[in-house]
């Protein structure tokens, strides 16, 4: 078993976001979902001094800079829609597994945008992870 670098990074993401799942629950015990999102952005902003790229940032292509900023906008909008779904009468036990299916959008779009191939065994892994996410959030 050789764990490739991308998987190590992904595992770090899983660990950090897994703890976030608990903190999200704890914060909404005390404050509203909207307030939680506002303080989440404040937390993001606290990290900004560590990641400040300086004027070097202007050397990247405008298109990629736009992708990066719009990705943040879409991520926060998605979280907002999730809160709206929960407030609009959606049961957490249905909304959470449903929204956890976002990798499906990526899986459908990747062949159209990027030239990457996935082996049959890897497809089985992707299927297992989607099943796992739905079962875990149910």
């Amino acid at each position: 078993m050789h764990i490739p670098p991308w998987l190590w990074y992904s595992i770090l993401t899983v660990l950090a976001w897994g703890v976030v799942g608990i903190l999200q629950k704890l914060s909404t015990n005390y404050i509203s979902a909207e307030s939680s999102l506002i303080w989440l952005v404040v937390g993001f902003l606290l990290l900004e001094p560590f990641f400040y790229p300086g004027p070097a940032v202007l050397h990247y292509t405008k298109l990629n800079l736009t992708y990066a900023i719009v990705s943040g906008l879409l991520n926060a909008l998605g979280a907002w829609a999730l809160f709206a779904a929960l407030k609009g009468g959606g049961k957490a036990s249905i909304v959470a597994p449903l929204t956890a299916l976002y990798p499906v959008v990526v899986i459908v779009l990747v062949p159209l945008i990027l030239h990457e191939s996935v082996s049959r065994l890897q497809w089985a892994g992707v299927a297992c992870s989607l099943i796992a996410v739905v079962l875990l959030s149910a």
Partner: peptide, 20 residues
């Protein structure tokens, strides 16, 4: 690394939430 695999792997974070 492969975009599909990375996205699927990173989406596994509920496993940690459930255990915690």
């Amino acid at each position: 690394g492969n975009t599909t695999l990375i996205t699927a792997a990173a989406a596994l974070y509920p496993m940690i939430t459930v255990v915690l």
